[in-house]
Amino acid sequence: MTTESNNTIQFTPDRLEKAKEIIARYPEGKQKSALLPLLHLLQEQEGWTSPEGMDYIAQMLDIQPIEVYEVATFYTMYHINPVGKHVIEYCRTGPCCLMGGEDVYAHLKQRLGIDAGQTTVDGRFTLKEVECLAACGMGPVFQIREKYYMNLTNERVDEIIDELSK
């Protein structure tokens, strides 16, 4: 990663508005509080939190780039590597496993032909294992962006993948 700012990334006008509104939420001098929300905004736009994007946010918040990198690498929601079009975040924690989560996961991996952390050759799907998504009564569960897919079965997984492959 470079600390030189050589930004090719910028927020779209509406996201820039949103970013300004977020920064203004915090007390004077506490604009660093906007870091997590801005990283989400960056990821929403770019698909991942690229080094260039993180440098851009550092500039915007008037903090050192390392302060952004150390945060982006601590929290698991930020993709610090490029990802496919749809990132499937599959819950691997106990309660989902009790509901057959491991079998459904095996089916999903087979269906996509990839393992956790990998992206399909066509760039459509990235598979990521995550911990508890706070939907244990509706397990097994996975999430794609903001959407929760619950009570998963092999058949339901096939339907979802078919739908997203169109």
């Binding site: 870091l35 997590l36 990283l39 601590f74 929290y75």
Partner: peptide, 27 residues
């Protein structure tokens, strides 16, 4: 009222880690 998103870290349920996170730091 301000709604703040976390970034995916169980530890931020611990109150002082949560405050660190709310200040834009690692939890």
């Amino acid at each position: 009222l301000v709604v703040q998103p976390g970034g995916g870290a169980y530890i931020c349920g611990e109150e002082t880690a949560l405050l660190e996170s709310l200040e834009g730091k690692r939890g």
